[in-house]
Computed example of a mutant assay.
Amino acid sequence: MLYPLYVWKDKDSAYGARFPDLPGVFTAADELNDLPAMAQEAAETMYEGEAHIPEASSIEKWRDMADYAGGFWMLVNIDRSKINTKPVRLNISLPENLLRDIDAFAKSHQLTRSGFLAQAALKAMAQ
């Protein structure tokens, strides 16, 4: 998901950056090209174990605010699937033979049923 990232650079310092949509997520990098990776890492750290990650807004929502004067904006793709959020219990129904096959496959790959289903869902959505 593309999030607006506000970037600034003071003389003799690294680039600083923050996400208005992700309160508390700040990052820095010596090279501008390194900011997207550093931003992903900062978002993962800040929201690890949280149940909700705020949605992205547009740059237009923020650009005229005084807090964001003197810098510039970037759109940064934050891969929300890499953020380990709080697990949620759910109840689903599957054919018995499919569930048996899932459990056997998961066990043979040292996974839990939930871990396997989560990986399968992420893989399917990435295609």
Rank of each mutant, 00 (worst) to 15 (best):
M1S: 14
M1T: 14
L2T: 15
Y3W: 13
Y3R: 03
P4T: 04
Y6N: 11
Y6S: 06
Y6G: 00
V7S: 06
W8E: 12
W8T: 12
K9E: 10
K9T: 09
K9Y: 09
D10G: 04
K11H: 09
S13I: 07
A14I: 10
Y15G: 03
Y15V: 02
Y15D: 06
R18S: 08
F19A: 04
P20V: 13
P20K: 14
D21Y: 01
D21F: 01
D21Q: 02
L22A: 03
L22Q: 03
P23F: 10
P23S: 13
G24K: 09
V25T: 14
F26L: 02
T27E: 04
A29R: 00
D30H: 06
D30C: 07
E31M: 09
E31D: 11
E31R: 10
E31V: 10
E31N: 11
L32S: 11
N33S: 15
D34E: 06
D34N: 02
L35A: 04
L35M: 07
P36L: 03
A37G: 02
M38Q: 05
M38H: 07
A39N: 03
A39W: 00
Q40I: 06
A43S: 12
A43M: 12
M46K: 15
M46C: 13
Y47A: 04
E48Y: 07
E48Q: 05
E48T: 11
G49V: 06
G49M: 09
E50I: 03
A51H: 11
A51N: 08
A51K: 07
H52W: 12
P54C: 09
P54M: 06
P54R: 14
P54W: 03
E55P: 01
A56H: 00
A56D: 09
A56F: 00
S57C: 07
I59R: 05
I59A: 06
W62V: 01
W62H: 10
R63H: 12
R63I: 01
R63M: 07
D64H: 12
D64Y: 13
M65V: 12
A66G: 02
D67W: 01
Y68T: 08
Y68M: 05
G70M: 05
G71T: 09
F72A: 08
F72L: 11
F72I: 05
F72D: 08
W73I: 07
L75Y: 15
N77C: 08
N77L: 10
D79F: 04
D79K: 14
R80H: 08
S81I: 02
I83Y: 08
K86Y: 02
P87W: 03
V88T: 08
V88P: 01
V88Y: 09
V88W: 05
R89T: 15
R89S: 14
I92S: 02
I92L: 01
S93H: 02
E96F: 00
N97V: 10
N97D: 14
L98Q: 13
L98G: 07
L98T: 08
L99K: 09
L99W: 06
R100L: 05
R100Y: 14
R100P: 04
D101C: 04
I102L: 11
I102K: 04
I102S: 01
D103K: 00
A106H: 07
S108H: 05
H109M: 07
H109E: 12
Q110E: 15
L111V: 01
T112P: 09
G115D: 09
L117P: 03
Q119Y: 10
Q119G: 15
A120M: 06
L122D: 13
K123C: 04
A124S: 08
A124Q: 14
M125Y: 09
M125F: 08
Q127A: 13
Q127V: 04
Q127I: 02
